[in-house]
């Protein structure tokens, strides 16, 4: 019994770290992993989702609906930005750093001016459950389940739907896709919107557990980039195992040596992974499959 409880507690820690990495990196995996746009405004899409979620939850919407609103709002803003700014940067990925950093400055400071320095949180729902002599937050378990669902949903979307096929084709061979009659501009806009929406979803999901301030997105950004980079270009082959491996590293280091080493370990892992397998996990797995 004691042993089972210990196992559960370890898996809970792992699942929690895994969920955080997967949920926060999904949007970036689409925008950076697939489209090659280095999106430094990723954190601000997350903040946008969180703010809209909190506002609609306080306006009386049930939480799942509110989270959907948050994701939708981020997606719409994402598509608008794609139209006006990002569209011009597809051939200049490095310039996208500057543009998205500019956008992120405007977003954080704009929210500060318009909505003030903080926003009231909405509180974590569902309470806790007692397993053995320790209590666990149920919402964290829901987050873990959501992260699995999210991976599954994205897989189905990109590999089992028409939109998925067209969008992968457009991003890999835009000219060919256009020659075959695909409206590539629309596909780019939708894909970017999807990435922004996923970031918004991350914000919505974590909104009940976090402090709501305009700079809240910055706590996600390092972890997101780390996961996507370790994963490599293919988000399904890469991101899921990357999140799993990093979650193990982070949870183990945090448990044994404290939060500092959890944090540093993550960054060192990235450096080593890039050095050992430059294409990330997905390239490594692909090569290994052949």
């Amino acid at each position: 019994m004691e042993f089972l409880l210990a196992i559960f507690s370890i898996s809970y820690q792992f699942g929690d770290a895994f969920a955080f990495l997967v949920i926060s990196c999904a949007g970036l995996a689409v925008i950076f992993g697939m489209m090659g746009i280095i999106n430094l405004a990723h954190g601000e899409f997350i903040m946008c989702g969180a703010y809209v979620t909190a506002a609609s939850a306080r306006a009386g919407l049930p939480l799942p609906m509110a989270i959907a609103c948050g994701a939708l709002a981020a997606a719409i803003i994402g598509m608008a930005l794609e139209r006006t700014v990002i569209r011009h940067l597809y051939h200049r990925p490095l310039d996208s750093i500057i543009a998205t950093w500019g956008i992120s400055l405007i977003a954080t400071q704009g929210v500060l001016i318009l909505l003030g320095p903080t926003m009231q949180g909405i509180g974590t729902p569902l309470g806790s459950t007692l397993i053995g002599d320790r209590s666990y937050s149920i919402y964290r378990l829901v987050l873990f389940a959501t992260s699995i669902g999210l991976l599954l949903g994205l897989y189905l979307l990109f590999y089992r739907t028409r939109f998925g096929v067209i969008s992968r084709a457009t991003i890999q061979r835009p000219d060919t896709a256009r020659a075959l009659g695909v409206d590539t501009r629309r596909v780019y806009a939708l894909t970017f919107g999807l990435g922004a929406g996923l970031a918004g979803l991350a914000g919505g999901l974590y909104a009940p557990t976090m402090t709501m301030v305009p700079t809240m997105g910055s706590t996600f950004i390092v972890e997101s980039f780390v996961t996507v980079v370790v994963g490599g270009a293919d988000i399904f082959l890469g991101a899921a195992p990357a999140a799993a491996i990093l979650a193990v590293i982070k949870a183990a280091l945090t448990a044994w040596y404290g939060q500092l080493f959890g944090q540093i370990g993550l960054l060192v892992a990235v450096i080593i992974v890039i050095r050992v397998m430059p294409g990330g996990l997905s390239a490594f797995i692909k090569r290994w499959q052949k």
């Binding site: 700014v85 500057i98 543009a99 500019g102 405007i106 977003a107």
Partner: peptide, 20 residues
């Protein structure tokens, strides 16, 4: 004043779009 960071951000976006 408080608009400094907004203006900076706008300048960056503008620069990238207009003078690559």
């Amino acid at each position: 004043s408080q608009y400094a960071l907004v203006v900076m951000g706008a300048l960056l976006v503008f620069t990238v779009l207009v003078t690559p």
